[in-house]
Design a protein around this nucleic acid. Structure first.
Length: 353
DNA sequence: GCTAATGATTCTGA
DNA sequence: TCAGAATCATTAGC
């Protein structure tokens, strides 16, 4: 690098801009200009503007600028290669994929319908229940989506504003110091990187919110629904009619599940709970046991009566009604008697029918 | 709001 | 692996 500084022949001792045009020695001249540049930051804004203007008009400015360009070029060369393009952040990619899969980012697709449906099935709810759950889930997901997009828009706007501001500043500064377009690009990249870390936090928070929503929705215990009356009756009938061995086989469980409109594991849970609770408090369940014993007996009797009726077509309908009246009677008797007597009553009832 | 009932989960032992 | 036991969380009735 060689800097040739020449004094304007016969020129004034001060430049038209008010700066001393020379100080006798070229080196001293350059040193003075540099000192003035460095001092700009310590000055007030108005003073700095005036000083900037004066420096821009200084006759030594082009020479100094070219030197700075030369130094800058070397510096940039030395750091070139260090600032390579960053590979896409795997964490951001994961978050993006998740948000896309959940329907939070990307096109709206009735986000999480599959999750909602799966959760409804897992909870064993009725179709009506599941549709209510489904719409609830979708509404909450839509809320998350809306917040996410509005925040994202804010960040993007802030990022763009800040980038423009910095670019304008650098362009302005490029008049007094050498700033290449590449440097401006690099600065923009740095700003974007900073903003993308903020964006990542937003994405992470959104993912967490979706996860919480999903876990709440999928947590069957939170959304426990009592089985309907018919299902409970079917299960109780089986339980009390197999009281000596209330352990349904897999086939029986499947059949019960089908009858009750619940899953096999729900049937298993029900029998597990029932066995333990019955064992713990037999007295409490005795009445229920009696009821189902009678019900089973009545059903059996009805089947038997229907069979005999089929064999003797002359039997009048009134007989059937009479039988039903007796059923009621025996039901009353069953409830009013103690369990040991019930057994004999049941035997008597069977014989009588 | 309290309490009993109930479905689900978790832990333990055979 | 399955059943028993304890416990949790929710629902329903008062």
């Amino acid at each position: 690098m060689e800097l040739i500084v020449t004094r304007a022949p016969g020129g004034p001792s001060h430049s038209p801009c008010g700066l001393p045009s020379s100080l006798g020695q070229p080196q001293q001249d350059i040193g003075d200009i540099l000192q003035q540049i460095m001092a700009i930051t310590d000055e007030s804004l108005d003073e700095a503007q005036a000083r900037k203007h004066a420096l821009n008009c200084h006759r030594m400015k082009p020479a100094l600028f070219s030197v700075l360009c030369e130094i800058k070029e070397k510096t940039v060369l030395s750091i070139r290669g260090v600032q390579e393009e960053d590979p896409p952040d795997p964490q951001i990619m994961r978050l993006d994929n998740m948000l896309l899969a959940e329907g939070v980012s990307g096109p709206e697709k009735g986000g999480g319908s599959a999750a909602a449906a799966a959760a409804a099935a897992a909870a064993g709810g009725s179709p009506t229940d599941s549709s209510i759950e489904h719409s609830d889930y979708r509404a909450k997901l839509a809320q998350i989506r809306q917040i996410y997009h509005s925040e994202l828009e804010k960040y993007e706007q802030a990022c763009s504003e800040f980038t423009n501001h910095v670019m304008n500043l650098l362009r302005e500064q490029s008049r007094t110091r050498p700033i290449s377009p590449k440097e401006i690009e690099r600065m923009v990249a740095i700003i974007h990187r900073k903003f993308s870390s903020i964006q990542m936090q937003l994405k992470q928070s959104t993912c967490e919110a979706v996860m919480i929503l999903r876990s709440r929705f999928l947590d069957a215990r939170r959304k426990r629904r009592n089985f309907n009356k018919q299902a409970t009756e079917v299960l109780n009938e089986y339980f009390y009619s197999h009281l000596s061995n209330p352990y349904p086989s897999e086939e029986a469980k499947e059949e019960l599940a089908k009858k009750c409109g619940i899953t096999v594991s729900q049937v298993s849970n029900w029998f597990g709970n029932k066995r333990i609770r019955y064992k713990k408090n037999i007295g409490k369940f005795q009445e229920e046991a009696n009821l189902y014993a009678v019900k089973t007996a009545v059903d059996a009797a009805n089947v038997s009566a229907q069979a005999s009726q089929a064999n003797s077509p002359a039997t009048p309908n009134s007989a059937k009604h009479c039988l039903k009246g007796k059923d009621v009677f025996f039901l009353v008797v069953f409830f009013s008697l103690s369990p040991p007597i019930l057994f004999y009553c049941f035997v008597f009832y069977s014989m009588f029918i």
